[in-house]
Amino acid sequence: MMVTGEEENLIVVDGLAKQYKEFTLHGIHFHLPAGYIMGMIGPNGAGKTTTIKALLDMIRPDAGTISLLGAATAADRIALRDSLGVQLDTTLYPDYWRVKQVAKSLRSFFPQWDDAYFDQLCTDMEIPLKTKYKSMSRGTQVKLQLAAALAHHPRLLILDEPTAGLDPLARDELLTRLQDFIADGQHSVLLSTHLTGDLERIADFLLYIRGGRQQFFGHVDDLLGQYVLIKGGLADLTPALRAALIGLRTHSEGLSGLLAVDQTVGLPDTLLQESITLEELMIYFGRGPHA
């Protein structure tokens, strides 16, 4: 759209595919220019974490190319880890570690590590200093990972479900922090979530994956602009409409379902047409084309 080719891409993924016994991820294409926030959404098991793991060289893709901060090979990407801040959706640190051990351990690996900033982040996020990692709540564990991810002043943040365990206030603070992070136009954030409300406002780009397949990549408004939510009485449900509706739900009083905007021509006025949210999009698509 308005993002022109002259901007530097911090992530470029082309044709990423990975085969597992019971799950296949394929056809993932996206790019993230410097200065933007990209959200990755999709139901559980859609392939979000697999995509992130591929970016981090934790898994070896079966096909496709990945360029991270301009590095196209695994060895080059590993060398650039100092410019990368990561939070994973898993327990990360040893059970008995406290905040102090995290700082002590990471300091020697990251030349840019900033103790003062790390302390500041821990204070701001109210991370208890004396609690062992395994005794922390999930939200606190995530916060500690986030503090560690930010403390070496990375250029790119990759966050897997960063808002999942956070309360609404902490979530809002995180989103503000991420906006501050990209404010200079040089830093970018990739985050996966299924709390779509977080993304609706602040995400510039959106990658929607379902069942290991990419459904959409682009701007949030463009995705939401492609569909309307149809509500109405059962009398209006023609066979043609039934076939076109996505995630149709009927009850004795009426129906609701998603419809592509280009198929709304000639619909009777008795059918209500509403703009949709990301959450509605995920719910109706989750129900499938002919529920």
Binding site: I37, I182, A183, R201, I202, D221
Partner: peptide
């Protein structure tokens, strides 16, 4: 654009689009 996006807690691209 980036200041307004931050102030309103909205995406940079949304703001870019409005200004455009």
């Amino acid at each position: 654009i980036r200041q307004l996006a931050k102030d309103l807690q909205i995406s940079v691209i949304t703001t870019t689009r409005a200004y455009h």
